[in-house]
Amino acid sequence: MIVVNTETLPGMRIVQVKGIVQGNTVRAKHLGRDIAAGFKNLVGGELHGYTELLTEARREAMERMLAQAQQLQANAVLNVRFSTSSVTQGAAEIYAYGTAVWVEPEAPAVPPPPRF
């Protein structure tokens, strides 16, 4: 499955548009991480636990979106976007959406007919 956030693909043309596909996930950090973050907030630095959480959340939302695209028998998802919203304290939603399409390689330039 080809996934991009542009509207076109180099060397490919869209043959069929399958429609919009989406996936979301709401994730919360666990209490241990909260306490660790509390300490980190005294001296600064990266909060690796939360970075990981975001990476996992994005991956999960993407996978759900791709599962939908597969069901629609698409071979590419174009113009993918991510959106986030805060649902409740300590939990964030990551939402991925895009347009599922069927693409095919652009026809190569027709070779000149052989001359006899």
Partner: peptide, 18 residues
């Protein structure tokens, strides 16, 4: 076109300090 295109991403969370 031979190399295609792919979605790439990155994320980072940074703590404040006292």
């Amino acid at each position: 076109p031979r190399h295609g295109a792919v979605l790439v991403s990155g994320e980072c969370v940074i703590a404040t300090d006292y």
